[in-house]
Design a protein around this nucleic acid. Structure first.
Lengths: 335, 335
DNA sequence: ATGATAAATGTAAGCGCTTACAAGAATTAA
DNA sequence: TTAATTCTTGTAAGCGCTTACATTTATCAT
């Protein structure tokens, strides 16, 4: 008798019907004290746990939310995911995770897989994906939240910030510090609207000021890539006075390149990051960067997504502001 | 007609029975070419996706694995989780994640929740948990793998390394460099057998050499905690010549403390970390540390866990070796 | 007490899928 | 051609649970 006990076993043991057992478990108030106790005893005695499959087949809810993030290797997503998971757990919901490796097709595949698993809701990063996917989500009436993005994604429920505006703010500060020879080490923009918006923000802000268009290179978000790209800039004929990096990881790589090239930061070149992960405060000099509210995005995405799941009403999008954090890696340009 | 199509709809559309549809989807070889095509067409036309609940109710398998890790905030777990997830995805399995925040009870609760969700397998960190939980896993016959631990956990399927031995190795090297005044900033050992083993390894190795017992402080695995603990050591009357840290995060904090105290690393004090996360190569000076095979643990745990799930045969445990990575943060003691 | 109303419990019909078994079609050997 | 064998496909019985509806029991006003 290795078979797990079913609700019928419990009902028999407690001398009640299966409906009463179900009610005792899901909505105890609707059951009288003595009955409830009898059922609880039977449950304990038999070591009964409800069968997940039976439950969702009958109720058509899984109490599961799926998340697709680019990668857990970037601390900023790991942290966001962590708070998302914790907040959901508080509401009795578990999180299915999948990663896309910044690949659009792969992401869509993951979304489909999660849908097939019957997730009640989805958390996604960014807004840029095929119309089919959005159509699918619509048709299935699956609540979803787009994180790390704001404003641009009309019609969707987003919880994020304005990457473009944040990038402009970076330019403001960099220009205010006296820089005119500006270069950018951006993350790959293909299939990554956040990276693209950061590039666009930098471009636009410089153009509006009538400053020369910056040299921009795009690389994958990895330390070594940042290091390599920065090395190229450092040994270029016309060395820029500041490197605006697409995120802190790239900035950390740039910092390393500066060190190996014997170039002092910020005296000879300034470096600015984005995200404000722990790393930013650990490197030497500490990174000037943009603080992104990743934890608040996690909690609030969880809360409102669940609200949508429970009420059926799509919540209003939330736009957080970002803060420019000045640390030692940004200084005045050398003259 | 917002209702999703069912297997019966597909069967009707394709002019076959539901059994044939099921077979086409799960085991295409058992169905003739033309029938298969007809079913596929019907599936596409109707946009059918199998209902998860129905499927698991009937087959009693969820193709889901659950993982409970302490936190995603530590890169080393985030990376391990990432590879675990990717490997499982390759095998058509999705990952449910939960975090324990290094809390035993919380972890057990998460395990129970995952079991209730019908996971087919579990990946857990460390071996130290209540007998009841192990009894429960046994009774349910749920395959599970214990990661980040090795040797000590008899009877369980583990994929990991020997924390104790790795810690001894650190002592070897530190002593070889000439240090005798050794202190340790350990992670909290309560409910964390990995941290405890690292402490035990350091203690034992020193005792065997007849060296004085080290001063050991325990703090949560956070940069600020490492910084604070290191600050205390730095301004102590009898300053140690080397700080052995429970992980790289604590070591990074210690490095920061040294900088603010104007203490040169490694000339005036040496610092050693553990885990070899990216951080270790980014800080200045780069950290001497112990490299832990987190990616290989992820892939191999996934592979063998699935093997166990599919064959019902518990695999043999796997013990990886760790490498001591010498970088600039470890030098000879000042005289 | 009596009937009317409310609360507690039971009955039973699915939810969508897989799969053992049965039946029919195609292939092969004689 | 026929019987034996192998492939394909269909039939239908659950899998364990929730929930609409029916029934019984308790509560209350009269």
């Amino acid at each position: 008798m290795s078979k797990n006990p079913t609700i019928a076993d419990v009902a028999r043991e407690a001398g009640v019907s299966t409906a009463t057992v179900s009610r005792t478990l899901n909505d105890p108030d609707r059951v009288k004290e003595p009955t409830r106790v009898a059922v609880q005893d039977a449950v304990n005695k038999l070591g009964y746990t409800p069968h997940f499959g039976g439950r969702i087949l009958a109720s058509n809810r899984t109490n599961t939310v799926g998340a697709v993030i680019p990668t857990m290797e970037n601390a900023v997503f790991a942290h966001g995911l962590q708070t998302l998971q914790a907040s959901l757990a508080d509401m009795g919901i578990t999180l299915l995770v999948a990663t896309s490796s910044y690949d659009r097709e792969h992401e869509e595949h993951q979304i489909r897989t999660l849908l097939a698993r019957g997730v009640d809701g989805l958390a996604l990063i960014g807004a840029e994906r095929s119309a089919e996917i959005y159509a699918l989500l619509d048709r299935r009436e699956v609540p979803y939240v787009l994180m790390w993005t704001g404003g641009k994604a009309d019609g969707h429920f987003t919880v994020g910030f304005d990457n473009d505006a944040a990038a402009r703010q970076v330019v403001d500060k960099v220009v205010a510090a006296g820089h005119t020879k500006i270069a950018m080490i951006a993350g790959t923009t293909e299939g990554n609207d956040r990276a693209a918006e950061r590039v666009a923000g930098v471009r636009a802000a410089l153009a509006e000021r009538g400053l020369p268009a910056p040299t921009i290179v795009e690389v994958p978000y990895q330390i070594e890539e940042g290091e390599r790209a920065a090395a190229a800039f450092l040994s270029a004929a016309e060395r820029p006075t500041v490197l605006i990096c697409g995120n802190d990881v790239l900035a950390a790589g740039a910092l390393r390149a500066a060190r190996t090239h014997g170039v002092n930061v910020p005296d000879q070149i300034s470096i600015v990051g984005f995200d404000d992960i722990d790393l930013a405060r650990v490197v030497e000099p500490p990174l000037t960067t943009v603080r992104v509210p990743h934890r608040r995005m996690g909690t609030s995405a969880a809360q409102h997504l669940v609200e949508w799941m429970r009420t059926g009403v799509k919540p209003a999008s939330i736009l957080y502001r970002t803060d420019f954090i000045e640390r030692a890696s940004l200084g005045r340009p050398p003259k």
